[in-house]
Structures are given as structure tokens and as C-alpha cells.
Design a protein around this nucleic acid. Structure first.
Lengths: 232, 232
DNA sequence: CAGTGGTCTAGACCACTGG
DNA sequence: CAGTGGTCTAGACCACTGG
């Protein structure tokens, strides 16, 4: 005898897999599922919670539960999704958008994005906060061919990373990790001392058709580490 | 106001991270935790369920809940071998052994190596050079159970990494990457300025039967970077 | 046997969303 | 406002483990 919550999970993934519930579509509410399956709301919730953790569903308080529009990403990539990482730690995530505009690409940026020198590209800078404390300064350049509406986004709703993944599914990424001293402007944004070290990650991401974006991510050395969950 | 189950999760991971609850150790039962935190059993369960899903705990019906004996592996860094890396770039590799002796393990080292506090362990420090320029300071501790002859090796012939892999085949590794300022001694060994940033990698390696070794690897920020290329 | 985790109920109050 | 998901309670019965 299967547990009831497992039967409900199988029924839901069945609907998703056979296409009767399409990506982004709203699915029945907790109360509706509880009634349909003749279980308590807590049992219906358990099925939804687990499918949500597995990346099949997305839930939003006050709105409902929806079929996820993308498959769960690889765990390697999740290491670099700052908003998710902070939420997973149970801390409050927030961000401040400092810049969002178009710039003309100089030679180096043109090469990195595989565009013509002088072509207009998007430029954004953001500061990401964990429980109100700045933990990442993001300096990003985006190829407008893959994300023509990048300049209109509200990154308080969806981080650049998540938005770009939705418009141009990620197929490849490339990282460089190094230790540097921050510029004065970056030190100020991160509320750290100019003489304290920063962990800098340079990241380029590809979609099937080319380079979507590259970003310089700066983290205060004493507030951010890459790797496993060990603490000493 | 944090949710109660998140407070309980943080309390538990705190005990694990500070070493007061060791791997494979039994932790309080659901009922005990519920009483300690003044919550219902379902709320205590939720904290345990999520930590179990995250790989921190292992549960067994009828037996209890235990601290997982190995941490989730960090797949972000491949095991890299500095000598090979330098040779691959076509440069001359050399190293200088600064220390090679036995020390008594203090509490932190004992926990990291999964040995009894006070047990003798090997300690070595080396500097690795690329074409005569120092690029890595290696500060390593080794469990003598897996490598009883570690103290007799000539690391100019074979790096500690390669020697250890030959006597205790590597099955797992764990990394932390961070940006720090070097101590004066390390700065001097690396011929770098005390105020320039260092990329620090803390690495633990496992063989089938347990933790073989852990090492702190310091690299001058302007002479060393970590890179990776991922395909999804 | 007493204790453990596994499942489940029928309620409750809350924060949030849209209309 | 009614409906949604988010958290939480105080019970219940079960399968399983060790002694």
C-alpha cells in the first residue's frame, strides 16, 4: 500500500508528463486536491512540497501552484545562484539595482560577448543582500540579441540570472575564480574595507546560439565562500 | 520573525558545524526536540526532514536520527594537481619542503581528520614553484592510519597529493574557496605583499575508509586563478 | 516491551494576491 | 473580500528496532 502523498505525487507528475498540465499552467489548489483525493490538506501539501523541491512545481502565496517552466538546473549551477543559495540557508534575500542601461561595447567586451566592437549591449550592476548584509556585487553585460527586453526587467522580482535562463536556456558556462582587492566603488557598495580581499568570479554563459552574458561577481572575503557547507 | 522549523534547522546545523555533534552520532529524537524547542512533533519533524533531504542527517525508523558521515560533495572543483597543471602549461615545476614532522592533533584538527583529540598526525608545509616563482603554499595534515610512511617521503620526487593517492585511493573530496589576506609567514614564503589578497582553498580528501588528509592551499591572487568550463 | 521514525487528520491563524 | 499558500498544533495509528 503506497502512502497517500506518494499517490498524489504520481498523479501530478503523470499529468505533467502526459502533457495535460502544461508548463506555467495553474494546477488545483491544496484544498481542491485534498477534496479530490479525500485526504487532509496537510497530506496534499506534502505532495506539493516535495514536487516543488524537486523542481516540478512552483508555488506562490496568494496566487497558487503552477507547473514549472524549466527543468531543475544542475547542482553545479545552483552554487552560483545567489538568491537561491540565500533562501536555502533560510535567510532573507534582497537586492538593489544600481545601474541598468545600454553601453557601446569596447574591444574586450565585444570579444567576450562575441559581438561587433561598438555594438550596443546591456549593462547592469546590482548588489545582493543576505539578511540586509551585502554579499555580492554583480557587474553584468548582456547580448541584446538573446534578451531584447533585458533593460525593462525589475530584478527585485527575478534576478538577472533567473531572467536570462528563462529567455535563453543555459547550455554552457565558464568560470574563473580569483582573489582581488576591490575598487573603492565596489568596496563602498559592499560595505567593506578597500584593503580587504574579495572573491571574484568571472562567469560567461552560453545558450545554444552563442554567448548570452558575462558577469563579474565580487564577494567580501569574510562573508562568502565557495564550496561545500563546512565551517571551521 | 523566523519560522520555528528554520530556527531548529539552524540550531542543528550549528551543532554539526561546530563539531559538537559528530558524524554518525545519534541526535535527539523527534519527541525530544519537540519538547526542547517547545513545538509540536510535526514541526520538529519538518526541520529533520529538510536536513535529511539536504544530506546533513540520516534517519532510520525504529533507530533514530544520525549526523551524516560524509558531506555532500562539492563537484565544482575537480581534484587538481598543481605539478601536473604547471607541467601542462609547459613550465618548470619545483617545490621546497619547509616542514615535515608529527604533531599532536588539537580539537579542530581531530574533528577534520576524524581522529581522537591528541592523536599524532603528520604535518607538512611546502611551497610550489612555477618557473621559479612561488604559486602555492601548502599546509597539510595527514592521518597516519592511511599513510604510515608519509614522514619518510621526498616530495621533490612525488607531491604529497600524488603520494597519498597512491597509498590511499581517493574516493571523495571537499573544497572551500575563499579570499583572505595571508599571514606574514605565508606572504614571505610566497614572496608577496602581506596586504595583497590570497586565494585560499581548503581541501579534505577521503579514501573508502575515511578522511586521509586536509590541506590549506594559499595562492597569490595575482598569480593564480581557478577556472572551469561546464556543459549542461 | 518502550522508543523510534512514517503517515495522517481536522482543525487553527497568518501573509499575501487579485478583483 | 474570498482564495491562496505558509506555518503550526495536538492528537492518532502504524511499522520497525533493540533489548
Amino acid at each position: 500500500m503506497q502512502a497517500k502523498y506518494i499517490q498524489i505525487k504520481n498523479a501530478i507528475t503523470g499529468h505533467i508528463e502526459d502533457g495535460s498540465w502544461l508548463p506555467t499552467e495553474k494546477i488545483p489548489s491544496e484544498n481542491e486536491l485534498a477534496e479530490q483525493f479525500g485526504v487532509s490538506r496537510m497530506t496534499a501539501r506534502r505532495a506539493l512540497d516535495e514536487l516543488c523541491a524537486a523542481g516540478f512545481l512552483v508555488r506562490s502565496q496568494g496566487l497558487g501552484t503552477f507547473v514549472a517552466d524549466r527543468r531543475p538546473m544542475s547542482s553545479m549551477l545552483e552554487i552560483h545562484n545567489i538568491a537561491e543559495e540565500i533562501a536555502d540557508r533560510g535567510h532573507a534575500y534582497s537586492c538593489r539595482v544600481a545601474k541598468l542601461n545600454r553601453v557601446s561595447s569596447d574591444k574586450r567586451k565585444a570579444i567576450l560577448l562575441s559581438v561587433q566592437e561598438g555594438q550596443e549591449i546591456f549593462h547592469s550592476t546590482l548588489v545582493h543582500f543576505e539578511s540586509g548584509i551585502p554579499v555580492q556585487y554583480e557587474d553584468r553585460y548582456v547580448n541584446p540579441v538573446f534578451a531584447p527586453d533585458y533593460g525593462l526587467q525589475d530584478f527585485n522580482v527575478q534576478t538577472p540570472n533567473v531572467y536570462l535562463s528563462s529567455v535563453a536556456p543555459l547550455t554552457e558556462a565558464d568560470h574563473i575564480v580569483e582573489a582581488v582587492l576591490p575598487s573603492k566603488a565596489i568596496a563602498k557598495s559592499l560595505k567593506m574595507d578597500h584593503s580587504d580581499p574579495c572573491l571574484k568570479i568571472t562567469r560567461r554563459t552560453w545558450s545554444k546560439k552563442g554567448v548570452v552574458s558575462f558577469a563579474y561577481l565580487y564577494h567580501p572575503g569574510d562573508r562568502y565562500r565557495l564550496g561545500s557547507h563546512l565551517n571551521f
